Amino acid sequence: MQVELLNRSKYRDGAQPGDDVALVLPGMAYGVFDGATDPRGSVVDGTPAGRLAALTVSAELAAIALDPALREAAPRELIDRLSDALERRTAALDLPVPPSTTVAVALDCGAEWRFLLLGDTGIRINGGEVLRFDKVIDDVSTAARVRLFHALRRQVTTPDEAEYATRRAIFLGLDQCVADGRLTPAEADDIVAGATADTGLTADADTVAAFLKGGIQTQYRFGNATGPLAFDTMNGTRTGLGEIIDQRRPKSEVRSIEIFTDGYPALPAEASAAAWETAFHEAEAADFHKTGAFATVKGSTGTEFFDDRTILILHTAAR
Rank of each mutant, 00 (worst) to 15 (best):
A91D: 11
A92K: 09
L93A: 02
P96W: 07
V97K: 00
P99C: 10
T102W: 06
V105L: 00
L107V: 01
L107K: 06
G110W: 05
A111E: 06
E112T: 10
E112A: 02
F115C: 04
F115S: 00
G122T: 04
G127Y: 13
G127V: 01
G128H: 15
E129S: 07
L131K: 06
F133P: 02
V136W: 03
V136G: 00
I137C: 07
I137R: 02
A143N: 11
F149Y: 13
A151V: 14
R153D: 09
R153V: 13
R154W: 14
T157A: 15
P159A: 12
D160A: 10
D160L: 12
E161W: 12
A162M: 10
A165Q: 13
T166W: 10
R167Y: 05
A169R: 08
I170R: 03
I170V: 11
I170C: 01
G173Y: 04
L174R: 11
A179G: 07
G181K: 00
R182E: 15
R182D: 14
T184E: 13
T184R: 02
P185K: 12
A186T: 13
E187G: 09
D190I: 14
G194S: 07
G194L: 05
T199C: 09
D206V: 08
A209F: 12
A210I: 00
I216M: 04
R221H: 03
R221E: 01
A225P: 10
G227H: 07
P228H: 15
A230S: 08
A230P: 01
F231H: 13
